[in-house]
């Protein structure tokens, strides 16, 4: 006897993907969470629509840099010297948000903020 395939039509709309299953974003203070949300919005609206094309062409979206500057995350977790400050957790969440859309973009910022500025910040003197 042929098996009958039951049609499993979902009764309600399916949930959107949620990658904060354990509510870890709630560990950030409100003002830092607001910055992370701003970064998420920027990545989703400005970077995501164009980045695959750049990736395929091996090119960097220089024209996005003025908007990145506007985000005010340069030198996050570093104090003084015009840096954005904030906690190291904030830096982590920001890097996670950026990589969630494009790991190249987070690497670009990681090299600039971490390896280059970080070396001067950690091992330099006034």
């Amino acid at each position: 006897m042929p098996t009958v395939t039951k049609d499993v039509k979902p009764h309600k709309p399916l949930p959107a993907p949620n990658t904060d299953f354990y509510y870890l974003y709630e560990t950030l203070p409100a003002e830092e969470l607001a910055i992370v949300k701003r970064v998420r919005e920027f990545m989703e609206t400005k970077v995501e629509p164009v980045i695959t094309d750049y990736w395929v062409r091996d090119e960097f979206p220089f024209e996005l840099l003025p908007a990145v500057k506007e985000l005010g995350i340069g030198g996050v977790a570093m104090k003084g010297y015009g840096c954005a400050g904030g906690s190291l957790a904030l830096l982590g969440f920001i890097q996670m948000e950026i990589a969630r859309i494009d790991p190249s973009f987070s690497t670009f910022l990681g090299v600039h903020n971490g390896l280059a500025m970080g070396s001067i910040y950690i091992d330099g003197l006034d």
Binding site: T19, G92, F93, M96, E97, I98, A99, R100, D102, P103
Partner: peptide, 9 residues
């Protein structure tokens, strides 16, 4: 953190 973001994406 970045690799966790990459996995999330």
């Amino acid at each position: 953190w970045m690799s966790t973001g990459c996995a999330m994406g």
